[in-house]
Design a protein around this nucleic acid. Structure first.
Lengths: 298, 298
DNA sequence: ACTTCTTACGTCATTCGTAAACATC
DNA sequence: GATGTTTACGAATGACGTAAGAAGT
């Protein structure tokens, strides 16, 4: 009855305004001429006046039709463009794919290989990697739409985040100063850490951080933890003996310090990192990268 | 299957983007929440990704939804505006109503009264009158959308033009110089005009002009006709005796010249003028004015 | 337990194509 | 009579609401 115009009608109007011929318009629209006629009639009823003068020989816009065309064509084109752009963003694999991590340790040993495989499969898409640091919760980078994917340490229990393929799985070690009392051990257990200070990052999700640097020993004694914000900070504190640093094996391969050595931790399970993303943002680009990762990691 | 987005979906999306609440959106849209949910789901399928993150407690745009909103909202508003403007033009009685004539003779004796009645009934609409002159076919003013209505002399036989109420009906007279041989007659007939020169305007429709200034006498003798472009021109030529001017009675009331008098023409029917308009342009404004004219003339 | 979003399903309105009618050249 | 638009009508799609279900607070 009233102003519920639909794009179906607009499309008929715009096509007919271009073709000025019901038959050709119908063909272009994949409709029959009768449908074009009826649809246009319906639109004219809504507008309240004739949009075309038609005889069986000539079809021509009325001044009213002309005016409607001038107003609606640009709006329609803009709408289609916006829609196509959104569709591209959701389903297209092109443009930058933004992946973040905290230190390249999270990327795992095959990350470069994955990126290469992905970029080979999708030449119009390129990977941009970013270090999120520890100043903000890395998941906020996803939630604020600054990153598409995160190489993130597990465990992770956030309802809006999907956990994808595992990128690394590593033995836990304690990074300690050579001169530290624990440095001579073949291995340590958590209970041994009681009384020492451990590094801690409060910006990480609590579940993740607590699994990486426990808050208590198995027997329940609290472990003192001190905030740090950079890797350099952490390793220097370990080197000076201020902290003992529960980490993963490859930490010392990447952030070597002459005064720091690693001692295996017996009673912590291997630590994993994984590709994670916001469930709601699962786009074709993300799917494609995850697929490449799965192929390489298989 | 693909990009057949419909405004129905867009409206749901835009409303939900404002309300961020299915229930309120449904209410505003005059739908049920289930319909809002399903329609949005359909749109998301078309776009290829989630537009909102929804739990039963919170509804929030995804980055994808945000982007679509930015693109589509202005386009939608522009489209609605354009549509409303066209609807206003077609159905509204507001703004200028442009009426043209050739000399105020065509308006007839009641025109001012009609305009007053119309403007009283429709205070948001005002009449603008224009003299079309004789340099162009007056109907072109309608066809080029420079005028809405024409006070035009009949007969008129154009397939795209509607003839409305009669504005004037007048006896035919011959305007001649006082010194002219025909000036002494009580009346003349067309046959008497043979051998004289008559004024003529080739820009008027042939049917109209030929009825006003015949091309031949009843017996078939051709009447010499000479082009003129202004009333002043016509009356001066009549005054000098260069032409004899078949016109209507009131011509000499409006365009008096000391050396010109009128002699009735016995064998020409009364001449009429009427409101005419392009059939396809019959808008509410035109209908309203025609109605006022009919009321006044009744 | 309560609010809010989603899914399932039956009903009805609209859209569609076919075919015939109508109009113009 | 050929070309092109409109009208009539039956079939199928899909838009709708109701009611039950699931999920989060």
């Amino acid at each position: 009855m009233w102003s519920t115009v639909e794009l179906r009608e607009i499309r008929v109007f715009l096509t007919l305004a271009e073709e000025l011929h019901f038959g050709r318009s119908a063909e272009r629209l994949g409709l029959t001429t009768s449908r074009v006629s009826q649809t246009l009639r319906a639109l004219e009823t809504r507008v309240g006046g004739e949009l075309f003068v038609r005889t069986s020989r000539r079809v021509r816009l009325t001044p009213l039709g002309e005016r409607l065309l001038d107003g609606i064509r640009p709006a329609y084109e803009r709408m289609e463009t916006a829609f196509a752009a959104a569709r591209e963003q959701a389903t297209g694999v092109a443009g930058p794919l933004r992946i973040g991590t905290y230190t390249h340790l999270n990327y795992g040993p095959r990350f470069l290989e994955i990126v290469k495989a992905f970029e080979r499969s999708h030449p119009s898409c390129h990977v941009v990697t970013t270090d999120t640091g520890l100043h903000r919760n890395p998941l906020d980078w996803l939630r604020d739409d600054e990153l598409d994917l995160l190489a993130m340490r597990l465990p992770l229990d956030e309802p809006d985040v999907t956990i994808g393929p595992i990128l690394s799985r590593e033995e836990r070690i304690l990074a300690v100063a050579r001169s530290h009392p624990l440095a001579g051990r073949r291995s340590v257990c958590l209970e041994d850490l009681a009384g020492y200070t451990l590094p801690y990052a409060s910006t990480l999700p609590a579940a993740t951080m607590d699994a990486f640097v426990p808050a208590r020993t198995p027997s329940g004694r609290p472990l003192r933890r001190v905030e740090h914000r950079t890797v350099a900070d952490a390793i220097v504190r370990a080197a000076t003996g201020e902290t003992v640093h529960p980490t993963v094996r490859s930490f010392l391969e990447h952030f070597r310090h002459p005064d720091v050595i690693g001692v295996p931790i017996r009673d912590l399970p291997a630590s994993e990192t994984a590709l994670v993303w916001l469930s709601a943002n699962r786009s074709a680009k993300i799917r494609a990268f995850v697929h490449s990762a799965e192929v390489v990691l298989a």
